[in-house]
Amino acid sequence: MQKVQIVCVGKLKEAYWRQACAEYEKRLRPFADFQITELVESRLPESPSQAQIDAALEEEAAHILAACKGGEVIPLCIEGKELDSPALAKHLQQAAVESAGRVSFVIGSSFGLAPIVKNAGRLCLSMSPMTFPHQLARVMLCEQIYRAFQILNHGKYHK
């Protein structure tokens, strides 16, 4: 069974975001060993300098890459490639064969991801040129992963 995880910096504070993610975790169980790994966000002052931001991103990067545990890393970033749902499904199918069956999607903090994390992925993924709150992006990513597995298994969810 393919292992798919979302590694994200920060926790979901509101119960409705947690409930939405939990629903997709439940739906994904028949298709994949799915998990969400939450990492602690680096503390920064209210108006951090660019040097402080860069240092925080590097600190987070070490934790992110350690949490990925091999396989394919897919960082989410605005400058990444936009895929439609069938293309994401195809990519997951290829990753199951080429990446020892393990894929780690990465959502960074509000300041993004360090270049070392972006460079760790052969595919950087963008959900849209628009900016979304990290909590919503996590739920959207869970839904798209579920949709991808529905596509691959010829389910009726994707129309």
Rank of each mutant, 00 (worst) to 15 (best):
R27Q: 11
A55Q: 10
V40Y: 03
N153L: 03
E79C: 08
R43T: 15
Q144P: 07
E23N: 09
I78H: 04
P129N: 11
L83M: 13
R43D: 10
L12A: 10
H91S: 11
H63F: 01
A55H: 03
S42F: 00
F149H: 14
L152T: 08
Q93S: 07
S109D: 09
W17L: 15
K159Y: 12
L152V: 10
E143F: 04
M130S: 06
S49A: 13
Q35D: 10
L28H: 05
R29M: 10
I107R: 05
D54I: 01
F34D: 04
R138E: 04
V97P: 03
I151H: 03
Q52R: 08
K156P: 11
D54V: 03
E25G: 10
L44R: 07
E72L: 15
R147Q: 08
K11D: 15
I6A: 12
A100W: 00
Q2C: 11
H134W: 01
G155F: 01
M130Y: 10
R43N: 11
S42A: 15
A61S: 10
S110P: 01
L123R: 02
E23S: 13
F111Y: 11
H134M: 07
L92F: 10
L65G: 15
R27P: 09
A89R: 06
V97N: 07
N119S: 08
Q150E: 15
L39R: 07
E25D: 13
I78G: 13
Q50R: 15
C142L: 08
Y24I: 05
A96T: 08
A67N: 08
A61P: 06
I36D: 02
S85E: 06
A15H: 03
R147W: 06
E58A: 15
A87W: 00
H63N: 13
A137C: 03
V97R: 11
V103L: 06
E58V: 07
Q5Y: 01
F111V: 08
I107Q: 08
Y157W: 13
G70P: 09
V106I: 10
H154W: 00
A137N: 05
I78Q: 12
V103I: 13
Y146G: 05
I36T: 09
A120I: 00
P86C: 07
Q144F: 02
E60M: 04
R27W: 05
N153R: 04
I74C: 10
S99K: 13
L136D: 02
E59S: 14
I116M: 14
S128K: 04
L83Q: 06
K159H: 14
A87V: 01
C77E: 11
A120N: 06
I107V: 08
Q135L: 00
L39K: 04
R43V: 14
K90S: 13
L12H: 06
Y157K: 14
S47W: 00
L39C: 05
T37V: 04
K26E: 12
S128G: 08
H134P: 03
Q35M: 01
A51H: 05
C68G: 13
E143Q: 12
K156T: 15
L12Q: 13
F111C: 12
E79Q: 14
A32F: 00
P75T: 03
Y16K: 11
S110N: 05
E82S: 15
